[in-house]
């Protein structure tokens, strides 16, 4: 298993936000994390990436308990793409992607040809090579998200976490970003709001409700009318497409 979580519990004060979650992700798999607002998607994602410490339970990534792995070592294997990470600093696209090499460089080591090659490849992968000298502030939302993904790729990770990477993007860019993520040669876990996009691009889906896993499986197995009513409180019609992974959800007004 690439990632496995065992009985994760996390909360603040008297409120439990992630309640006894266990899951596992196979190498190369794209796992979608869906659930209504406040269901604990973002928190779970951060627990899995080691950015929050669970109250109990543990996470193993590539066979190691991440609580015992130094932060920098972990960052060479695991990348995390926040939603809409922003800055006021006047940085260029290349500067941003170069930050991805941070965990691979010691305090005194120079910028190597290998670093440069990784950065160039990452920019190429997200089709932003032509924008490398452009200022961050002048990029569109879709371009910024692509640069964030390039920066994550520059970490040379084996596992990538993405927290609602398609928020605030138009449908073209939503599809473009998710196709890119799916086609990466990585294990990825993506928190998503759009159920149809989750159905289109995820190998498997984990459904969260009130911090607990309600269901887990392939999109066509998980996304049923009953589940949508119970978890998301919507009436919808689920149409199985002509080919697998083409499950489509049509929401009803009442």
């Amino acid at each position: 298993m690439s990632i496995s979580a065992h009985n994760l519990v996390w909360g603040v004060r008297h409120k439990t936000i992630v309640a006894d979650v266990s899951l596992s992700v196979a190498p190369g798999e794209t796992l979608g994390l869906i659930g209504p607002n406040g269901s604990g998607k973002s928190s779970l994602l951060r627990l899995l990436a080691g950015l929050k410490q669970p109250l109990s339970g543990r996470v193993e990534i590539l066979g190691q308990d991440i609580a015992r792995v130094p932060r920098r070592t972990l960052a060479r294997q695991v990348a995390f793409v926040q939603q809409n990470a922003a800055t006021d600093t006047n940085v260029s696209v290349r500067d941003v992607v170069r930050l991805g090499r941070t965990p691979h460089r010691s305090a005194l080591s120079g910028w190597s040809a290998a670093d440069e090659a990784v950065v160039s490849a990452a920019l190429e992968r997200v089709d932003m090579t032509g924008h490398r000298a452009q200022a961050w502030q002048t990029l569109s939302g879709g371009e910024r998200q692509r640069v964030h993904i390039a920066r994550a790729l520059a970490q040379s990770p084996q596992v990538m976490f993405l927290d609602e990477p398609t928020n605030h993007l138009d449908i073209h860019h939503q599809i473009e970003i998710l196709r890119m993520v799916r086609d990466l040669d990585l294990t990825s876990i993506v928190a998503l709001h759009d159920l149809n996009l989750a159905a289109m691009f995820c190998d498997r889906i984990v459904v969260l409700k009130a911090g607990a896993v309600v269901d887990c499986g392939t999109p066509d197995a998980v996304l049923t009318e009953t589940l949508l009513r119970d978890v998301f409180r919507v009436n919808a019609e689920v149409c199985a497409g002509p080919i697998p992974c083409q499950t489509h959800i049509r929401f009803k007004a009442a």
């Binding site: 990348a79 995390f80 990470a85 922003a86 800055t87």
Partner: peptide, 19 residues
């Protein structure tokens, strides 16, 4: 280098391996 990693905030710096 660690200071540079704060460009997109604390959590982002942590994700880049900065203590």
């Amino acid at each position: 280098r660690s200071l540079d990693a704060f460009t997109f905030g604390d959590e982002d710096a942590a994700a880049l391996g900065v203590p």
